[in-house]
Design a protein around this nucleic acid. Structure first.
Lengths: 202, 202
DNA sequence: GGGTACATGTAATCAGTTACATGATTTA
DNA sequence: TAAATCATGTAACTGATTACATGTACCC
């Protein structure tokens, strides 16, 4: 397989799902994504309808369509597709993580607002990230309890769980970050720039 | 100011920089971004050339161009632009953080490769994130030492520092995550799915 | 004075996003 | 059977990415 013109993360997402779950409709992909990576890496459903046809054009998948009823389109990965994923798996992604946080962007510009602006932003973001963290942790504990009754889960689910674990760790870091911001901005009247670093021996 | 048609994060980035730094060329914006948010939220330079003209069309900025030499284009924020930023600052961003990590995507599909695939991915990602973390921490400590000699820095630089601090926290979380993955995959022969959760009392 | 790195910009493409639209199923 | 929700898809737009291209300053 000579280098197919650069595939995007979206391409590999779709290829990977097709490889793992077998022939799928875009809707099935959507479901799968929403339950896992979709929590912190959004792939709007239109993307998952648009990507498979691209893969077909590249010979990495094939398409069949129902003739009656919903006329669902089902996509199947080709051997070329499988080998594309496998090669990609072994090619280290040097593209670094994109951490696109609108709240952080606001904080970055907080000095352009009024004196209360930073506090408002921080309070909001703290609430948002705490909620998200809680959601992750609840999901994790419900997973665990299912496993508790049913015994060990397969390796597949375990890998799925990993992505959420990263999400959890990120949210924990985010909560810690915003809490730190909150304490620096606590209304002792001092603006963040006024304090010393390491005010206490850590 | 009636609702300008939805502005993107990029719009606010540019508006914010124009508001803070005064009239700027796209190149100046590029420099500024590269030194701060650009570390974890990429804004390719072409974007920073494309966005200001959009803002001009919306009446949020104005443009002047040198007539000789490099014919640089300089953009200035308008009062409408300033008020747009300020309103945005007070409107909580409910859009949640996008955490787009290609390495994590690979891990998610690691089971599609060979038996060694997970280990390879994990090793690579661990190296990458450790390097990035080190870079952040060195940058932070050099900042501190500058401050140590020159006294307190302005509030501006402090806010700038915040974004990098979030970057640092994220990288720490990432390193912790990949280390955890590494230890789960340590070659005791067990695949991750085979182990119990909480094998030891933590 | 020639090379190298910085500075500056545009054009073409393509991916991602929003919006729209409708068919099928479930539930009240 | 009406309402609500799930399922399925397309079209239009526009923002993001890549690639190209050239000018200017600095270094040896």
């Amino acid at each position: 397989m000579l280098s197919t013109p650069r595939l995007s993360p979206t391409s590999y997402l779709v290829l990977g799902l097709l490889a793992r779950d077998g022939p799928s409709t875009p809707y099935a992909l959507k479901r799968q994504v929403a339950a896992t990576l979709g929590h912190f890496w959004s792939f709007p459903h239109a993307l998952l309808y648009a990507e498979p046809p691209r893969l077909v054009k590249l010979g990495l998948a094939t398409e069949t369509q129902e003739l009656q009823g919903r006329r669902r389109r089902t996509f199947t990965i080709t051997p070329a597709g499988v080998s594309a994923v496998q090669q990609w798996l072994l090619r280290p992604s040097h593209d670094s993580t994109e951490l696109r946080d609108p709240g952080l962007l606001q904080l970055y510009f907080a000095d352009l607002g009024s004196a209360e602006t930073p506090r408002i932003i921080i309070r909001e973001q703290l609430a948002i990230h705490r909620a998200k963290l809680k959601e992750y942790e609840e999901r994790a504990s419900s997973q665990r309890s299912v496993r508790g009754t049913a015994g060990a889960v397969g390796q597949l689910e375990e890998w799925h769980g990993h992505s959420l674990r990263m999400g959890t760790l990120y949210e924990r870091a985010a909560v810690a970050f915003w809490e730190e911001m909150a304490s620096e901005t606590a209304d002792d009247g001092a603006a963040p720039g006024d304090r010393r670093d390491e005010p206490l021996i850590a």
